[in-house]
C-alpha cells in the first residue's frame, strides 16, 4: 500500500508537519545575548587599556628623542631638532637652499 493516497493528502500532511527546535532554545538565545552584552561592556575598558599603553610608549619615545638631541647637540634649538645645528649659513648645501 502506498504511503500517500493523493496530492491533497500530502498537502494536508504538510499542514500537520510540526518540526521543533531542541529543548532550551529560548535559554540558548538569552545566554548568547548575555554573552554579547558582556563582550560589549568589556570591549571599552580594553580599548582604554590599549590606548594607555600606546600613548605611554609614544611619550617615552619622544622623551628618549629629546634626551638624545640634548646630549648630542647640547641644545633644544629648532636647528638642533632639525639636525642642522652644526651647519653654518655658508655651508654649500644650505647656501644652495637659500637658508
Amino acid at each position: 500500500m502506498k504511503k500517500i493516497e493523493n496530492m491533497e493528502q500530502f498537502l494536508d500532511s504538510m499542514a500537520n508537519y510540526n518540526p521543533k527546535f531542541d529543548d532550551g532554545f529560548s535559554d540558548r538565545i538569552i545566554g548568547k545575548l548575555d554573552d554579547d552584552q558582556k563582550d560589549t561592556s568589556n570591549s571599552f575598558p580594553e580599548f582604554v587599556r590599549l590606548f594607555r599603553w600606546v600613548s605611554l610608549s609614544g611619550v617615552a619615545a619622544i622623551i628618549i628623542l629629546l634626551i638624545t638631541i640634548y646630549t648630542t647637540e647640547g641644545s633644544f634649538d629648532l636647528d638642533a631638532i632639525y639636525g642642522i645645528f652644526n651647519f653654518s649659513p655658508d655651508n654649500p648645501v644650505l647656501a644652495s637652499l637659500d637658508y
Binding site: N18, P19, K20, F25, S26, I29
Partner: peptide, 10 residues
C-alpha cells in the same frame, strides 16, 4: 521567543 519559536522552527 517562546511564543514564536514554533513559527521560526517550522
Amino acid at each position: 521567543v517562546e511564543r514564536y519559536q514554533e513559527t521560526v522552527a517550522k
